[in-house]
Design a protein around this nucleic acid. Structure first.
Lengths: 194, 194
DNA sequence: GACCTCTCTTAACCCAGATCAATCAAATTT
DNA sequence: AAATTTGATTGATCTGGGTTAAGAGAGGTC
């Protein structure tokens, strides 16, 4: 089950077979069933997880008890509370599975050792972060400048697969709109199309 | 004028004097006067800039002609259109100076050479990106869960210096609210306080 | 000192999207 | 298969913040 991870890394940097093997040996497979947690608010985010199969989300719960989806992750994506992972602070986020999932996790000590043993991976993680950073920045731009309907349209375009797999109310939460509003927006799009 | 940059890097990684010198030699000082541009929409973002003195902003202009501030940068911060810089695509952003500023810029070819010559800097940029990514993710969480007033309060807390230096309408744009609304919010805060 | 230009404030009105409430459909559980 | 839970839809109503418009300081510039 390390095949996807190996391929994922080779897309960004070059590693020898033996480096790939040593890299893989730092990761531990973990099964996360639907509605089970990989991380709960108040814990320390021990792991960074690579999704081998399934779908997870990272979300916060505000004082009113409302959930807000920070991030989704399906196959070939990473998910974690990076802040908690890096600083050792308690997490303000929850990460749970929207489908039965299998992930490969690595803890901080292992990752640090791995980066020392295989310094080429520094580059991999820099590239990965560059992409992630660009993604979040685009999401910010989007919320600053576009209407709820436009944001939904962009979501469909950017993440067509996710849009199929994830419940509508979760997408609404990710976009920062009420589920009822998303329902109306979808109706409006459907009406306009025909 | 490389002192601030040297100190900035030493805060995250260890470099020898000679490595610091070689690092600094890759950067070029550049003066950007108030209202002048470091990058304009449609150009390719050639540089990553480290702010030595002054204050700049990165913003997009939407189809209605409205500006949306993506990022501010003052002394000891970095500013760029990372997407354009990395991919070579045309930028959708503008970067201009809100005050007369001095920055240290590095282009892509130089940065790549620098990273090859001083691989320890891979780590520096990874750490820098980790912080930036965490920051943007927190900003997203904030827009998803907090009211305009709460977002402004958090801004004041997180960036007390910026709040002093930057015009109110720019802060409003950064927070995704109309300048008139921010004015009302400030009045409300003042009224509540006394 | 008169004249711009920018930024901020205030007030009246408006609207996109939230909230509340009821219903329906489709999974899950028992 | 009946009962329960979960997610989606629809309608009615409300509201935070947008929009428009007008005026007021505060620098700059001639």
């Amino acid at each position: 089950m390390y095949e996807l991870l190996r391929a994922h890394i080779l897309k960004k940097i070059e590693l020898t077979e033996s480096e790939l093997d040593r890299m893989a040996s730092y990761f531990t497979p973990k099964r996360v069933l639907k509605k089970h947690f990989l991380l709960q608010e108040g814990e320390v985010g021990k792991y960074i997880a690579f999704v081998d199969r399934g779908c997870l989300r990272c979300y916060s719960v505000d004082p009113k008890g409302e959930e807000h989806v920070i991030q989704f992750a399906i196959e070939d994506w990473w998910i974690s509370d990076l802040q908690s992972f890096l600083t050792g602070e308690w997490s303000r986020y929850n990460i749970d599975a929207l489908e039965d999932s299998e992930v490969l996790v690595i803890d901080k000590i292992s990752r640090d050792s791995m980066l020392v043993e295989i310094p080429k991976l520094e580059r991999f993680f820099r590239l990965l972060l560059e992409r992630s950073y660009i993604g979040t920045q685009q999401r910010i731009e989007c919320t600053l400048s576009a209407s709820a309907e436009d944001r939904y349209q962009m979501f469909l375009k950017t993440f067509p697969t996710l849009a199929q797999r994830v419940p509508q109310n979760q997408i609404a939460s990710y976009l920062g709109i009420a589920p009822e509003s998303l329902s109306r927006i979808r109706k409006h799009i459907a009406d306009t199309a025909k």
